[in-house]
Design a binder for these strands. Structure first.
Lengths: 270, 270
DNA sequence: TTGGGGGTTCCATTATGTGGAACATTGTTT
DNA sequence: AAACAATGTTCCACATAATGGAACCCCCAA
């Protein structure tokens, strides 16, 4: 009933019934990055005050948010707990882990594992080089696909129509002087990446940060991902990155193979 | 109405209306630690098939779960993304971080920051010693309070009635030969911890793993937490831990102070 | 062909969520 | 001190959206 209406008006921000609204509120608070007061929240999600208030109290009861003494709302610990369990139970990450460690040993630099999710890639694991200032966990961080090594590598393994669909949704924010400004440039580079089997990030997302990445593509499990080796430009120049390209490709291939082997084909033909 | 029934049978797992049920389903899948089939899930949450099925599809639409080709359900990446943002926007962790790094430099061993949540402590940050096998993220992990250094330290800062309330809810699982088997022993130790200002974990949770911890108590923000230095028993003996006790206490004190300063009093009197 | 164990869909019923408006509280202005 | 504004909370008539038992549809094995 809810869908037969074919309402063409309020598409987009609808969200799935009640759960959707609750998640929108949760997202609003979490994304804000600081304590949010009731009125702030009402504004960011465009819902009536009464509704938002009830949703908030439900979220608090569930431990997804906490309300502090000054009445503002912040993320609760339930989210961390859930995420930890979902992360440590993730088979893909688990299979990839030893390969990431090996790649780290070979290169001495930071190694990332990321999964493509529409237009962005989400980091699911990381092996750190020494003492990077920011210590653990980029885990869960989302970055745009078009300006990261893993992102471009992952995109390159998609079938062309799918690539085009996703590219059409991208917004090309110019993070640095080297960031792609439009789909055209990206798509051209993707052709090269398909030919080479690996992608570079030449300070496209963050200045002074470069990487080489290779795609991991397992369509049977709807998994489009990638591995990368990242380092500061002053330490790893392009020649160095190019020299690592092969081991990165090999690592990706091994992960791909092992995932295929251990996870088997999704038994349902399509 | 669902509660006025006073059904004494399926108490417990009620949950706040629709959101609560959805979270129960989510929790069931995430906790299982592997792909869950529809029937499994129906069993673990005691809800009718129709209901569970709808909840699952909503959770999938929201990206909290994904359904794989073989029809089984697994955690989706939305959870990681949310958790990352909530973690990196966490002021307490942010304030504590430099102190943790300093403590790590002084001791050379792994440093943890954990928050008490009823009967368990949840790790919110970690500075790793070298290459521990398990790399990043214990972050989000929950461990029982009664057998961890941070847990006992945190408990020791609670007012007695609150301590008793929580102690009454504990289930004393004997992880090792040194684990407290009952509240009595724990409470006695807590008295000592109150006197000393620090707590030890003498292989009570995991064999061969010891730690010293000190409490961080900020009632104005309902924050009961702790810091610890952890190491393998063969490398850090009790004498070593005792020697570190003071810097651990100092670190805790500094974090406490800085949090008070930067977060201010919760402006509402009570 | 029959039986059984999944998973999915239907749909009448009503419990649940909805949201506008009144209310309470605190801080600011005249 | 009275009027005002801004913010959070509560109420409640209303209808939307969740409910859950039953029918349905596979695929597989006896």
């Amino acid at each position: 009933m809810s869908e037969t209406k074919t309402t063409d008006a309020e598409i987009e921000i609808a969200g799935t019934g009640t759960l959707g609204k609750a998640m929108a509120v949760l997202e609003a608070v979490v994304t804000a990055g600081g304590p949010q007061r009731f009125t702030d929240i009402v504004q960011s999600v465009g819902q009536p005050r009464g509704t938002v208030h009830r949703l908030l109290s439900h979220l608090v009861e569930e431990g997804l948010l906490v309300q502090s003494r000054d009445l503002s709302y912040e993320p609760g610990l339930r989210l961390l707990k859930l995420a930890h369990r979902s992360w440590s139970g993730n088979r893909f990450r688990d299979i990839a882990e030893p390969h990431l460690l090996r790649l780290h040993e070979m290169t001495g630099e930071t190694v990332h594992l990321g999964v493509l999710q529409e237009t962005e890639i989400i980091y699911v694991d990381k092996v750190e080089s020494r003492q990077t200032v920011r210590m653990s966990s980029q885990i869960g961080k989302a970055s745009p696909a078009y300006c990261t090594g893993i992102g471009k590598a992952a995109l390159s393994s998609l079938p062309q129509p799918e690539l085009m669909r996703i590219a059409a949704k991208m917004k090309f924010h110019p993070f640095t002087a080297h960031t792609h400004r439009s789909a055209a440039g990206l798509l051209a580079e993707i052709d090269e990446i398909r030919r080479d089997g690996h992608a570079f990030d030449r300070e496209e997302h963050e200045a002074e940060i470069c990487c080489v990445a290779a795609p991991i593509f397992i369509p049977e499990h709807d998994l489009v991902a990638g591995v990368s080796v990242t380092g500061p430009a002053y330490r790893v120049n392009m020649a160095q990155l190019a020299a690592w390209a092969e081991v990165v490709r090999e690592t990706a291939a091994k992960i791909e193979e092992e995932v295929r082997m251990r996870l088997g084909p999704g038994r349902n033909g399509r």
